[in-house]
Amino acid sequence: MDFLTDPYAVFLVRWFHVLSGIMWIGLLWYFNFVQIPNMPKIPDEQKPAISKVIAPAALFWFRWAALATIVFGLLQAWQLGYLGPALALGVGSKSAAHMSIGFGMWFGLIMALNVWFVIWPNQQKALGIVEVPAEDKPAAARIAMLASRTNTMLSIPMSYSMVAVHLT
């Protein structure tokens, strides 16, 4: 397992974490800044282009990028020796740096769980990827939208804590 803590492996994992993170948060912001606010402006007969083609493709890359970001992020924390202390928010190690990155890790974990266990199941119902009665679709779409908004909100402190560690 020594190769995993080789400096070049540490760098590669960080790069993969950033790449998958850009894919994830880029699509999250696409949903919240572009798709959701503009859906009401699209004529009904054209809406399926988004709901049947664009959104399912975006959701595919979105949810797998979320998983990849978490896997590479946790691996990076382990490589650098602070996985446990950071998840404990620096309480045991009395470290502001562990607390800072720990906040970011917890926000990221909550966001990824939101993606896989709230947004994705509800989007499947809302977009008709799984069959549900038509009257259940608006509630599913609303839950997915609010969970997506929650993640947009959390992406702000999450990214801050990720890049602010050197200040502590």
Binding site: N32, F33, P37, G90, K94, S95, A96, M99, S100, F103, M145, L146, R149, T150, T152, M153, L154, S155, I156, P157, Y160, S161, A164, T168
Partner: peptide, 30 residues
């Protein structure tokens, strides 16, 4: 009452507020 997260603007304001609180906690805890 309307959920504040229904508005994108409020979502961003809440995100910034959480960030400020978090930054202060990190700065002054240890």
């Amino acid at each position: 009452m309307k959920n504040p997260l229904e508005s994108l603007q409020n979502t961003i304001l809440l995100g910034v507020a959480i960030t400020i609180v978090m930054a202060l906690i990190v700065k002054y805890t240890f």
